[in-house]
Design a protein around this nucleic acid. Structure first.
Length: 191
DNA sequence: TGCCCGATTAACT
DNA sequence: GTTAATCGGGCAA
């Protein structure tokens, strides 16, 4: 079995952690799969929730690494982040897509679709499929209901601009598995 | 208190 | 390609 990711895994630069998460396995109560797409955010980054300092919503981002930051998006969806870097950096990785490997039936029921590639291909879809809500905000990532396992074998990681933001749009802080069918959007082919 | 808008998605044309 | 759904956060007043 793959090695479990501990909190020390997250106590590094968000730009080291983000690509290292590609290919790792995330389970929530046994439901989940291989991460194929994430984005990095940092307090010096105008697109980050933490850019303007701590607030009630983003408090977890300012805490220690290895915890889940969950926020409401567009009044409709939940989005899951992993807090990174030493306490105070206010850096986090947005979990955008995964390749389903466990609990497919549960995910289909929660999502209301049988199309496998639409189960977890997008941050809002992923949280719906895994049953993640605001209740998970502030939870440790190395304790139930979360389980995280390091990737096994080689994974080809590509990067590019982040999706759905209007500030710092050119920073290539989106990371994903090259060629995965489970990305929320394809990466622009390298020149 | 009021107003604008967003780390999205699905259903349209 | 365009747009409605839906609502809390953050900031101006």
């Amino acid at each position: 079995m793959a090695e479990r990711l501990t909190r020390s895994f997250f106590n590094r630069s968000v730009h080291e952690v983000a690509p290292d998460l590609i290919g790792a396995t995330l389970l929530v109560r046994g439901v989940g799969g291989r991460l194929v797409e994430v984005e990095a955010y940092h307090h010096t980054d105008p697109a980050a929730h933490s850019f303007r300092g701590p607030t009630e919503r983003n408090a977890v981002m300012f805490g220690p690494p290895g915890y889940a930051y969950v926020y409401r998006s567009y009044g409709i969806h939940w989005c899951l982040n992993f807090v990174c870097e030493p306490k105070g950096s206010a850096a986090a990785v947005l979990i955008r897509a995964l390749e389903p490997t466990a609990g497919l039936g549960v995910m289909r029921r929660r999502r209301g679709t049988f199309v496998e590639r639409l189960l977890c291909s997008g941050p809002g879809r992923l949280t719906e499929a895994l049953g993640i809500t605001h209740r998970h905000n502030g939870f440790a990532l190395d304790a139930p209901p979360f389980e995280l396992f390091a990737r096994q074998g080689d994974v080809e990681v590509v990067s590019g601009p982040r999706i759905g933001i209007t500030k710092a749009v050119d920073l290539p802080w989106r990371y994903g598995e090259k060629g995965s069918r489970f990305l929320s959007k394809p990466f622009r082919p390298e020149v």
